[in-house]
């Protein structure tokens, strides 16, 4: 008899627990299902020189970062100076120009500095779909076996770089 009357209260307590936890979660951040899985392979023309082609196969045996960006993306501009800084420290950064007009993309690299070893051109966004991109910028850390180890959604922040990406790169380099 008594339990029956307390039951609503108990259910409410459980609910409050979840709601409280929910306050500290970000519903907009969607983790990638590709983490721990092989990075989708692709070949794409190199931005600025379409006679050359970028092959993911060539990256086997290397640890590398793939940064998806576009000239029309405001958050990418925010991130850009940090990328340039990373490049100065020899971080193996590769770019993918996502759904961009080639001249616009090149103009950004011209004016803000080119942080990429090579930039592949994904003009129609199909490579983006294979990687599950839903908003640029997004950055993938890929290990020597071609496995995606980490995905940064949104601009790389100095904190994310220091606390997550750099330690991971160190670990993978071994």
């Amino acid at each position: 008899m008594k339990l029956k009357l307390i039951l609503p209260l108990l259910l409410f307590v459980v609910l409050v627990g979840f709601l409280g936890k929910g306050l500290f979660l970000n519903p907009r951040e969607v983790p990638s299902p590709l983490i721990g899985k092989p990075a989708p392979t692709f070949e794409a023309p190199v931005l600025g020189d379409s006679s050359k082609t970028f092959y993911t196969e060539e990256m086997k045996g290397k640890v590398w970062l793939l940064n998806m960006w576009a000239s029309w993306c405001v958050a990418c501009r925010e991130e850009h100076p940090l990328l340039v800084e990373m490049r100065k420290h020899d971080i193996p950064l590769y770019g993918l120009a996502y759904k961009d007009v080639e001249t616009n993309a090149l103009a950004v690299l011209e004016s803000m500095g080119d942080p990429y070893i090579t930039t592949a051109n994904d003009a129609d966004g199909t490579i983006g779909i294979d990687y599950g991109v839903y908003g640029v910028p997004e950055t993938y850390v890929i290990d020597k076996k071609g496995i995606i180890r980490y995905k940064q959604i949104g601009p790389i922040t100095p904190e994310a770089l220091r606390d997550t990406i750099l330690p991971l790169l160190k670990e993978l380099a071994v």
Binding site: K2, L9, V16, L19
Partner: peptide
Amino acid sequence: LLFLVVVIGGALTLFALRAQ
């Protein structure tokens, strides 16, 4: 959330105590 706890939690506690 705090307000919910006070209002709903209070109401349900009162319910558990008085509705028998």
